[in-house]
Amino acid sequence: MEIFNKALTKTDINVRFSFPTNRIECFAELEEGQSHSVDLTVKDSRQRVWTFSCRKRRNGSHPKPWLSGEWLRFVKHCGLKIGDKVVMVQEDDQFLGSQYRIEAKRRIIVLGQAIWADVLVNC
């Protein structure tokens, strides 16, 4: 199940990746207020494992979630640029629980049509 997709901004590339607030319910520990930070183990399209810290503001009614931890290393490793798109997918496994997968996409033109292709340059 796709949790969210987002085109990357300058802040996402250089500082941290903020994602849509309405998607925070996907991370139950943050939603229930048990913690303001939770580590997520995420696999990319090549099955490489990354650990992202999912965080939210401690105060205020606007929690503004973001990813940090190995996020910037992931960006650099994959050669991501402003305008590329990241898709976060959650897959439920009855034995392992929720598993997360991240896909990096870049807009390319093929036969005059714009499509989103996987970024596999370095990933």
Score class of each variant (00 low, 15 high):
A28W: 00
E91R: 08
D93Y: 12
S45W: 00
A28T: 08
R23Q: 08
I108Q: 08
I3L: 14
D93E: 10
L72Y: 05
Q94K: 12
V15C: 00
L8C: 03
S18P: 07
D12I: 00
D92E: 12
N14L: 12
F4Y: 05
V15L: 05
G79R: 06
L120C: 06
R58P: 03
F52K: 05
C26A: 07
D39H: 08
E2V: 15
V86D: 05
N59E: 12
S37G: 09
Q90P: 02
I24F: 07
I108E: 12
F95D: 06
I3N: 04
I108N: 06
G112R: 10
S37F: 00
V87E: 13
C54Q: 03
L96Y: 15
A117V: 07
D12S: 09
K105A: 04
R46C: 09
S53F: 03
I115F: 04
D92G: 05
V86S: 01
Q47R: 05
E70I: 08
E2F: 08
D92M: 11
I82Y: 01
L72G: 09
G97K: 09
R23P: 01
D118G: 08
L96M: 15
K56I: 11
E70Y: 13
L30C: 06
L80A: 12
L67D: 07
F27E: 02
N14V: 03
L40F: 09
E32H: 01
M88N: 02
I82R: 13
D92I: 14
T41G: 09
C123R: 08
V15A: 02
T41I: 14
G60F: 13
D84R: 04
V86L: 14
G83V: 11
D39I: 10
M1S: 09
L80K: 03
I24W: 02
K76T: 15
R57I: 02
C54Y: 02
I82T: 14
G97R: 03
V119E: 12
S18T: 15
E25F: 06
G60S: 14
Q34C: 04
R107M: 12
E2L: 10
Q99R: 08
T51L: 06
A7L: 06
C123F: 02
Q47F: 07
D44C: 01
G79M: 01
G83F: 05
T41A: 07
A28F: 02
S35K: 10
H77V: 11
G79A: 09
R57S: 13
R57V: 04
L72C: 04
V89F: 10
S98G: 03
D92H: 10
R23A: 10
G33R: 01
G97D: 00
S61D: 09
V121K: 12
I13F: 00
T9F: 01
W71H: 09
S37C: 10
E31K: 14
I102V: 15
W66G: 07
G83K: 10
P20I: 02
C54R: 02
E103R: 04
C123M: 08
T11M: 00
V15D: 10
S18W: 10
H36P: 00
A7Q: 08
C26Q: 00
L30G: 05
S68G: 13
E2G: 04
A28N: 09
V38C: 11
F95Q: 04
F52Q: 04
H62G: 09
I115C: 00
V89M: 13
I3W: 01
D84K: 03
N122P: 04
I13L: 02
E25W: 00
